[in-house]
Design a protein around this nucleic acid. Structure first.
Lengths: 108, 108
DNA sequence: TTAATAGTTTATATTTTTGTGAACTAATAA
DNA sequence: TTATTAGTTCACAAAAATATAAACTATTAA
């Protein structure tokens, strides 16, 4: 029987991106490290909820965190996440373009 | 107020990858077009369930489909999905490596 | 026209994800 | 030592995702 463990592990990485708040977090952490409080201010998400999202992202390995005094800093664990994320955004843009082309066909 | 529509749309693309069966589908469609029946045989997923997964992937724009006689063919709607997907896999491998390095530290 | 094949749709049950508020913990400051 | 700040954890409700089975549709073949 075929082992599909890799697909589950792989999909767990994808799940870590599969939420609007988490996409925004990836976006804002793209080029810089930010504290919990800064991320909260930018996203406007309630702290308990934000903490859950961040902890999911850390445990799935796409973010790293470290504490300095009272502040917890978060950053992307590597550059590939940002790149993959930007590719997905391009896929989205391509899809929207296809859609609009299709609509224009009908309107013509 | 900030418009976060793009994050929702972007996360919808990511959601289309956020499932082990769908990752396997992306994987097998990487370099070729396949019929529903072929995908079913490879994945071993029940037809009604497979149809739901494929239809989600088509409506999110990551797959395209066309019918020929009794068969429905599926393919990736572009190369970027495959590339993004491979990047995610690399992220996974990096994460696993980090984990194992950490464990080795403790064992030493 | 009837049957067979290939796939879709629908209803439903189960599981997973998400958001909220309250209680909690850790580090610093008074 | 007590209060404050910064964040986490927990319990729970609501929403979304998933799997299954049965009924359905479309195309081709007999």
């Amino acid at each position: 029987m075929k082992d599909r463990t890799i697909y589950t592990l792989h999909s767990n990485i994808c799940k870590a991106l599969a939420n609007p708040i988490r996409i925004e977090i990836i976006d804002v952490l793209n080029d810089k490290e930010l504290t919990f409080g800064e991320i909260q201010e930018i996203t406007g998400v309630m702290k308990s909820n934000l903490s859950q999202h961040l902890s999911l992202m850390v445990s799935s390995g796409i973010l790293m965190q470290h504490k300095e005094g009272l502040n917890v800093f978060f950053k992307l664990s590597g550059p590939k996440i940002g790149i993959a994320c930007r590719l997905m955004r391009e896929v989205l843009i391509e899809n929207m373009k296809r859609q609009s082309d299709l609509i224009n066909q009908f309107m013509k």
